[in-house]
């Protein structure tokens, strides 16, 4: 962010002294807050060994690890299904046939506008009533795919639109058909452009599996709650450990996103998006698309 550094002149000696003073005050404030929190935790005995010892037990770790595996399983299946639905949806949304366009637009509009939590709750209620008795995993995935395919379709659409029109026009002018131009010229470049946004989509999917908690599907968050009902003294500790586990997965995905973005800064000079469109994509989809619950 070069623009970030430009909001002030390089400090001279007086300003440097003042900046140092403000920085020191900032550090002290932060440390003060941390110490206040730490003291509070210590006062209620949260650092006591007896609250942590349950996590030394291999059974507990195994229990949490299985939860993580269940979370990732639900996330991977949802991701594959949602993304493979998203591409045809986005193409239908951009189609020249009115009925197809309307159909895709209403699907996307419907399932983007409804909270995922509501979708999942009613998946659990409605599917059995039409004779589909699935496991909790099935319901969770069904709701997630409905929602996230609509979300991902919008990302794909934005990616296709962000590619300059010249690419498609050039392809048509050398005699390619509409679908050939899409398949061989537009999509490969557009997919590259939207990769960071799609990874944010994956991150949202991973985190949204935590809604399996209410079905209930035995994923990571639910497991941590079960540990705390089994060992009430370790509630905060199990929440902490689970947060770290989610954080680890999320950090991997965020790092992947950053790596891809950095690579693209070098390799995608040839892709010249229409003025403003790409930055719009960027602001639309911040480092992670926000909770879509």
């Amino acid at each position: 962010m070069s623009a970030d550094n430009l909001l002030y002149e390089p400090p001279g000696p007086i300003a440097r002294r003042r900046n140092r003073l403000i920085s020191v005050i900032g550090v002290l404030l932060l440390l003060g807050c941390l110490m206040a929190v730490g003291h509070r935790l210590d006062a209620s005995g949260q650092f006591d060994a007896k609250r942590w010892e349950i996590f030394l037990h291999p059974g507990t770790l195994r229990f949490l690890f299985d939860g993580l595996v269940a979370t990732l399983l639900a996330a991977v299946i949802s991701m594959v299904l949602a993304f493979s639905l998203a591409l045809p949806l986005a193409l239908a949304r951009l189609s020249s046939r009115l009925w197809l366009r309307t159909l895709a637009a209403s699907y996307i509009g419907c399932f983007r506008a409804v909270p995922l939590l509501l979708l999942i709750l009613f998946t659990v209620i409605l599917l059995p009533s039409i004779g589909l008795n699935w496991s909790a995993l099935g319901y969770l995935i069904f709701g997630m795919v409905l929602h996230h395919s609509a979300m991902a379709a919008e990302i794909v659409r934005a990616g296709i639109l962000s590619l300059g029109r010249g690419q498609k026009e050039a392809a048509l002018s050398i005699g390619m058909r509409e679908h050939q131009a899409m398949m061989w010229i537009v999509l490969p470049q557009a997919l590259k452009l939207m990769l960071p946004a799609l990874i944010s989509g994956v991150l949202a999917i991973v985190q949204d599996t935590s809604l399996g908690y209410i079905i209930p599907y035995e994923e990571l968050l639910r497991r941590s709650q079960q540990i705390s009902s089994f060992a009430p003294q370790s509630l905060l500790q199990s929440a902490f450990i689970v947060t770290v586990m989610y954080g680890f997965v999320s950090a991997l995905l965020l790092a992947l996103r950053r790596w891809i973005e950095r690579r693209q800064a070098y390799t995608s000079r040839a892709l010249i998006p229409e003025e403003g469109e790409l930055s719009k994509l960027d602001t639309l989809v911040p480092a992670k698309s926000p909770a879509s619950t």
Binding site: D208, L235, Y246, G247, S250, K288, A291
Partner: peptide, 20 residues
């Protein structure tokens, strides 16, 4: 960005009362 919203909410509703 790294935390699921529901995890944060549960932490607030069940965890904070433990700290008073």
């Amino acid at each position: 960005q790294m935390m699921p919203l529901l995890a944060l909410l549960l932490l607030f509703t069940f965890g904070l009362p433990k700290l008073g």
